[in-house]
């Protein structure tokens, strides 16, 4: 279980998160809903250590996930796909994918792993030799997820995977999210598109101005008046 307790974080003097707590059980899909600026991306960045934490703890099976560079979180099994995707745009799709396995570079199964991911993301296969910048938005999102999965994380943090994509592509990506979770990787999903997020998630919470204002199962959230009026 990935546990966040009383997490405070922000940018410089500006506090964005004011005491956020949440749990992601192994294999589950948990969603964090909220408006623009609620602190959703800040939460994910603070969990992996891309942003320093001001206070609070993040633990993985009761062991602290250290603050610092994301390579620590990655070694512990927590990977982030950020909203901006942060692909290596001038490198080929194949290189982007392979580099996702950087921390496991000694392992013999890097090629097999990337084959397995290309079966999950078949639209990337025809584009392997192209630079990542030539991909469409949907393909870039898929490559970003595939790159993160190359490190074989146990927890995948997804920041707004539906942003700016056509509904058909969003369907495809969320189908893949379900598949990832069915194969044992837990997903912490940050979304503005609450309808589709609550469709795949088993539980979740609502973040408002850096605080959790509501939490519950997906069913409870879907029926909550607050979620209905503000997010659905």
């Amino acid at each position: 279980m990935l546990s966040v307790r009383d997490l405070h974080a922000g940018y410089g003097n500006k506090t964005v998160l004011r005491g956020v707590s949440l749990d992601v059980p192994r294999g589950a899909i948990v969603t964090v809903l909220g408006a623009n600026g609620a602190g959703k991306s800040t939460l994910l960045k603070a969990i992996v250590g891309l942003l320093p934490r001001a206070a609070g703890t993040v633990t993985l099976d009761d062991k602290p996930l250290f603050d610092g560079a994301p390579d620590r979180a990655l070694k512990a099994g927590v990977a982030l796909v950020p909203e901006q995707r942060e692909l290596f745009l001038s490198l080929s799709v194949a290189d982007n994918l392979r580099l996702g396995g950087y921390l496991r570079r000694g392992a013999a199964d890097i090629a097999a792993e990337s084959e397995r991911l290309l079966d999950i993301f078949p639209s990337l296969r025809a584009r392997l030799a192209q630079p990542a910048r030539t991909l469409s938005g949907g393909e870039q999102q898929m490559l970003a997820i595939a790159r993160a999965l190359m490190g074989r994380p146990e927890f995948l943090l997804l920041d707004e995977p539906s942003l700016g994509l056509a509904p058909r592509i969003v369907e495809e990506i969320f189908g893949i999210v379900r598949q990832i979770s069915a194969e044992g990787t837990a997903v912490l999903l940050v979304e503005q598109n609450a309808a589709i997020a609550l469709d795949v998630a088993s539980s979740g919470c609502v973040l408002d101005l850096g605080e959790v204002t509501l939490r519950g199962t997906a069913e409870e959230l879907r029926n909550s008046p607050i979620v209905k009026t503000s997010y659905l």
């Binding site: 982030l80 290189d95 580099l99």
Partner: peptide, 22 residues
């Protein structure tokens, strides 16, 4: 792999740190 990691960091520093490159 190390050389590719250097190219990756030249291309996108945040992306490189996300795949575990120091």
């Amino acid at each position: 792999f190390h050389g590719k990691a250097i190219m990756a960091a030249c291309d996108n520093r945040i992306g490189a740190s996300l795949i575990g490159v120091q």
